[in-house]
Nucleic acid binder design. Structure first.
Lengths: 104, 104
DNA sequence: TATAAATGAAACCTTTTGGTTTCACAATGC
DNA sequence: GCATTGTGAAACCAAAAGGTTTCATTTATA
């Protein structure tokens, strides 16, 4: 399974996710929003699916793309572990470490 | 300036950030932790710097890499806007939308 | 049934990535 | 002064990314 971080690295793919976040769309509806070819958009959708961020369900001849945002949890977890480093700049540990750093 | 999402897409770069999150290290200290060449690690550091995630300060002949985790805020913001979509699965809006989706 | 619509996938191309080795240079240390 | 240490950058490479056009297949429709 493809890395979620890598999947969301491309701006087009983030846009696709935003587009289907609240309502699923079929492949044509998604690709219609972009200037690049349908095939190119399809490849992006495929990558998102490989990362688990999108699920595709067939309905007749259409395939609807459903966003699985819970897969973003791994990104959230990674970022949040560092939040204290920029949110609580006056944190005592931070202050201590910075003092060490400057003294060096 | 380079896109932060793209900067953190590479696992080696995320590892570098974790390595210097709490204490700055010079380029050699960082590259010493990897099996790939110093030049390769240096390129990763350069990309992180271009994204604003790392700042380099010279001290004598050494260059210390300081992590600027606050630049991760853009990632945090993007992810968090979708948190309700997976955290509050019983949310009324969510339920309503899913009902619409299923009915279709 | 013949056409049109919606996709999936293949073949091909150019640019980016991620690595490597090598070389030049400034700051230190013997 | 000279060898060593710590870097930055260039030249080069193979593989991966991101696009394009084209073609085959399945499902609806006139």
């Amino acid at each position: 399974m493809r890395d979620v971080f890598q999947a969301i690295a491309d701006p087009t793919r983030r846009e696709i996710l935003g587009m289907i976040a609240y309502r699923s769309l079929n492949v044509n509806a998604v690709s219609g929003q972009f200037k690049i070819s349908r095939a190119a958009v399809y490849k992006h959708i495929k990558i998102l699916r490989e990362a688990g961020l999108v699920e595709i369900k067939q309905e007749g001849r259409e395939r609807f793309c459903h966003a699985k945002m819970e897969k973003l949890a791994v990104v959230s977890d990674w970022v949040e572990q560092y939040r204290k480093l920029w949110n609580q700049k006056l944190d005592s540990l931070e202050a201590y470490l910075e003092k060490l750093q400057n003294k060096k």
